Computed example of a mutant assay.
Amino acid sequence: MRDFSNDHHWLSINTATVRKQRGVEIPLDRIIDQCAERGIRAIAPWRDQVMAAGLDKTAKQLKAHGIGLSGYCRGGFYPAPDAAGLKAALEDNRRAIDEAKTLDAPCVVLVVGGLPGALEGKVAYKDIGRARSEVFDGIAASLEYAREVGMPLAIEPLHPMQAADRACINTLEHALDICDALDPQQTGMLGVALDIYHVWWDPKLEQQTARAGKQRLLAYHLCDWRTPTRDLLTDRAMMGDGVVELKKVRGWVETAGFEGFCEVEIFSSLDWWQRSGEETLDTCIERHRSCV
C-alpha cells in the first residue's frame, strides 16, 4: 500500500468539497487557485462550475497551474418518461464526454439516474426495473461514442437511499455486472467510480473490489460516514471523523491494482461548507496523510 504520510502527491479535490466557503458559492477559478497554492495536483470539477467559468478558460487555467483531473462530474441521469427525454439524456452525455476531452479528464463519472421526476417530487413512473433498463441502454449508447473519442466512463453506484432520485445502481456488484455485459473484453473504456460514502457498508465490498481489478477501478472517492448523520445528502464527514475503516478499504483498492488519485468529495452544508476554503483544503491535506 502506498505511503501517504509524508506528502499529498496523490490527493485530488472534488470541487464540491469547497464550492461553498462560509456559506457562499465560490467560482471555480478561485478553487483552482486555492488548490494550486497548496500543491494539490488534481481536481474533479463539476460541469455546472466549468460552464460558469468557461470550458476553454478552465482548460487553460488548469494547464497553467499544472493541475490535472481525477475525473469529471458528471454524466448519467438516463431514465426519462418518453423517447424525447431519453434522446435528450444521450445528447447531454455526449456533451459531457466532449467537455471531458477538452479538459483531458481520465474519465466521466456517471451518476446514472433513478425514477424520472423523483428529484422534483413528481415521479413520471414508479417502475425501477424500467429505470434500470433505460440506464443500461443509455450507458451502452454513450459507450459507443466514448469509444470513438477515447474517453472512459465510470459508473458510480450510489447508496440505496438514493435509488429513487439519483441512481438506481446501488452496489458495486451491480455496476460491475453492467461493465461485464457491455465491455466483456475489459478494454478500460468502462469501469466504476468507487465512492466510500456510498459503498462502505456493502458486505461484498472487498470481494467486488477485487473483481473490479485495475481495468475497472477508474476513480476512488473519499470522505467518511458521520454518526449520527444529520442529512443524507449533505452531511458527509471529513476523513477520520466517521466510522469507515479508510485504510483497510484503500488496501483492498490498491491490492486490486488502483494506482490513481484519492479524490476527496465532501458535501457538508452543516460543517465544512461553513468554513473557509483554506481551512478545508488544509484539513484535507492533513487527513490524507494521517487517515486515508
Rank of each mutant, 00 (worst) to 15 (best):
L115S: 02
P45Q: 10
G260H: 05
V249M: 12
T58P: 11
A53Y: 13
L55M: 13
E144F: 01
G129D: 11
V243H: 04
L90G: 08
R166L: 11
V244C: 12
Q49R: 04
L222N: 05
I178S: 05
F4I: 02
V244R: 00
Q162I: 02
N170M: 09
T187L: 13
E279F: 15
R216D: 01
T102P: 09
D127A: 12
E173H: 03
A100T: 05
G66R: 07
R41A: 10
G260T: 06
D271G: 07
H8D: 05
G113H: 02
L246S: 10
S12Y: 03
I13P: 10
E25P: 01
T15A: 06
L176N: 10
Y220D: 01
Y197W: 03
A140C: 11
D180V: 07
C107D: 08
R47L: 07
V123L: 14
E37F: 04
R236D: 07
A237V: 09
V108I: 13
A124D: 07
A64T: 10
D271S: 14
R47N: 14
L281G: 00
G66E: 09
P79I: 08
G121K: 04
L55W: 14
G114L: 00
C168Y: 01
V135M: 13
R94A: 09
L103P: 11
A64V: 02
W200N: 04
E173M: 03
Q21E: 15
R95V: 07
Q162C: 11
A52Q: 15
P116V: 06
Q34F: 04
M239G: 13
M239D: 13
G138C: 02
L217C: 00
Q34W: 14
I13A: 06
A237R: 09
A36D: 10
N14Q: 12
E99C: 01
W200T: 02
L233R: 08
G213T: 01
H65P: 06
C35K: 05
R95E: 15
G251N: 12
D92A: 03
A164I: 13
V112D: 08
A36H: 01
R289L: 04
G39V: 06
G68H: 12
W46H: 11
G114S: 09
A212E: 09
P184N: 00
G23R: 04
R22Y: 14
G76S: 03
Q21F: 14
R2P: 14
P27R: 11
C291N: 14
Y145T: 10
A210Y: 00
S5Q: 07
T227E: 15
V199I: 09
L176F: 07
E144H: 00
Y220A: 11
P228Q: 04
A88M: 05
L158V: 06
S269K: 15
L69Y: 03
S268G: 12
G213M: 06
L205V: 00
P45G: 11
A96T: 03
P152G: 05
N6E: 13
P79D: 07
S268Y: 01
A105I: 06
D282E: 13
R147A: 12
D183N: 03
Q34R: 10
T171S: 15
L143K: 06
R30W: 01
M151G: 03
A146L: 10
K60W: 08
W273V: 14
